[in-house]
């Protein structure tokens, strides 16, 4: 899932300060599952904003902000009508016309999709961190995929070194493994302890009797397939 963290209230208030009426739109996907942007958190956010003096005119929930609708489906509609079309009402939809901006509680993908179909500004309530999962035990989030465009999980025991090795190494552990932990666990900037992904990969492959997978030299990542900021033309990617 997409892991997010709510922005600090001061930052949200600063973002909203130019607008007189604000509508909130939560999301029923990852942010609901991890309790940062579901219906409950959307209501809580409205409460906190009102306490701080923000005029929250309406609240709504999109089923998934990462897929709302085709642009053609909302052609000719006003912003308020568009919000009514893609979100279910929690409160105040009759007043949507008064909204000068929308605060989205979805991840960065959802914010952009909503912004794409609205003329008024859509602002992010979350910092979007990565694709991964929340580990409830130990209360930390685990990044699991970088969307590299060329998945190598088949020979790494289902553990991604691109996302989970601090150096995204392709050919085994570096010299920085310290009692099974990655060297960045002991860095000057404080952090959670991070297990060395390559030691985890080694242990998993060993258990599966597949250590020979580690013996093959894996080629350098091809960043024409894997660079950030890439654009994938639908139907063109092989």
């Amino acid at each position: 899932m997409i892991i997010t963290r709510q922005k600090p209230m001061e930052e949200i208030l600063e973002m909203l300060s130019p607008y007189r009426g604000v509508a909130l739109v939560g999301c029923g996907g990852c942010v609901a599952f991890y309790r940062t942007g579901g219906a409950k958190q959307t209501r809580e956010m409205a409460e906190k904003l009102r306490e701080a003096g923000v005029s929250v005119v309406a609240l709504g929930m999109a089923n998934r902000q990462c897929y709302l609708c085709e642009e053609s489906e909302v052609a000719g509609l006003s912003d308020a009508e568009r919000i009514r079309k893609v979100a279910r009402e929690l409160e105040g939809f009759a007043q949507l016309e008064k909204a000068e901006a929308v605060l989205s509680l979805a991840c960065g993908v959802g914010v952009q999709n909503l912004a794409n179909i609205l003329d008024i500004p859509v602002l992010p309530a979350q910092n979007t961190l990565f694709m991964g999962r929340r580990r409830v035990e130990g209360d930390f989030d685990l990044e699991q995929c970088l969307g590299c465009g060329d998945c190598i999980l088949a020979f790494t025991g289902g553990i991604c070194p691109i996302a989970r090795c601090a150096k995204s190494l392709m050919n085994g552990p570096c010299g920085g493994v310290f009692n099974g932990m990655c060297e960045v666990s002991k860095s000057r900037v404080s952090e959670h302890p991070v297990p060395c992904a390559w030691i985890e990969i080694y242990r998993k492959l060993k258990k599966q009797g597949r250590v020979q997978e580690l013996r093959k030299i894996r080629p350098p990542k091809d960043f024409t397939r894997a660079a950030h900021m890439r654009k994938v033309a639908w139907g063109v990617q092989k």
Binding site: A166, R188, P220
Partner: peptide
């Protein structure tokens, strides 16, 4: 070593 270990921890790690 990872840049986080040194005196410029904000640097972008390359490891191409």
């Amino acid at each position: 070593d990872h840049p986080k270990m040194g005196n410029h921890p904000q640097a972008k790690p390359v490891f191409d």
